[in-house]
């Protein structure tokens, strides 16, 4: 309980009349690698977007690193978070987007150094040195001067990973990082994510349809269905012997 770095406490999220998250309880331990699977529209992306502060909540409390994310404790009561609080909390998290969301007008190098320089206040030289290390890590050491449109999708996504890592987050969120890729480019991105997963400090939350990969790298897999966690467990438990009928149906449909 106390070592949870992420905790959703009866979180409600609505879009108009549609309740996307319905009193969701959810926990992730520090350093844990959790995969989120589930049918389209079940609220998987919403969970990540709430954590990345791209989407607010309508009820409940989200805790990150022991502090409420969307609230601030002032004079003994929980009040909606100020932008300053959100900025501070946001620095703990990083996100890798399905469509990469790289900045098309900047070189790969500038994509990675922009935020460290502007937000963390790093010197340009230092930021570039670190960017080079990160590019090396994702296998793109020789692509620093290129623009995103000159790279393949797989390369772009690896830049996206390097860009997120450059902000030194302790939690990294992946929203279907390989769904927009041609099948032959999926492997190179998964290899990079797999390598990151071996690092024990980093907490990872991965929404994916790559079941084999989820099984390999996750400590725990959560099956989302209609804004609730229908079933969760170790990859072996969930994939070989799911107890819920819905999970079985979903896995059967996706594995065929």
């Amino acid at each position: 309980m106390t070592d949870a770095i992420i905790r959703f406490d009866k979180v409600v999220k609505r879009f108009g009349d549609l309740t996307v998250l319905d009193e969701l309880d959810f926990e992730v331990k520090k350093g844990e690698k959790v995969s989120i699977i589930g049918p389209s529209g079940s609220g998987k992306s919403t969970v990540l977007r709430i954590l990345m502060t791209l989407e607010g909540i309508d009820g409940g409390v989200v805790h990150v690193d022991g502090e409420p994310l969307w609230h601030e404790l002032r004079e003994g009561s929980l009040l909606p978070a100020s932008e300053a609080h959100l900025r501070r909390m946001r620095s703990k998290l990083g996100m890798v987007f399905q469509q990469f969301n790289l900045f098309p007008h900047m070189t790969v190098m500038r994509n990675i150094t922009e935020a460290p320089v502007k937000v963390l206040g790093l010197g340009k030289k230092e930021a570039q040195l670190r960017a080079e290390e990160l590019l090396d890590l994702v296998g793109l050491a020789d692509q620093a001067k290129k623009f995103p449109h000159q790279l393949s999708g797989g390369q772009q996504q690896r830049v996206g990973i390097a860009r997120a890592l450059a902000m030194r987050p302790s939690i990294l969120l992946f929203d279907e990082p390989t769904s927009a890729l041609d099948p032959e480019l999926v492997g190179e991105v998964l290899t990079v994510i797999g390598r990151l997963a071996e690092e024990h400090d980093l907490t990872m939350l991965l929404v994916t349809h790559e079941m084999r990969f989820a099984r390999e790298i996750s400590d725990r897999v959560c099956f989302f269905d209609r804004g609730q966690i229908r079933e969760e467990g170790t990859p072996d438990e969930l994939f070989t012997d799911p107890s819920e009928e819905r999970t079985r149906e979903f896995l059967k449909a996706i594995l065929d």
Binding site: G94, M95, F97, A115
Partner: peptide
Amino acid sequence: REAARALNLS
């Protein structure tokens, strides 16, 4: 804008 926000750019 979302990428910028995720990177904590002002």
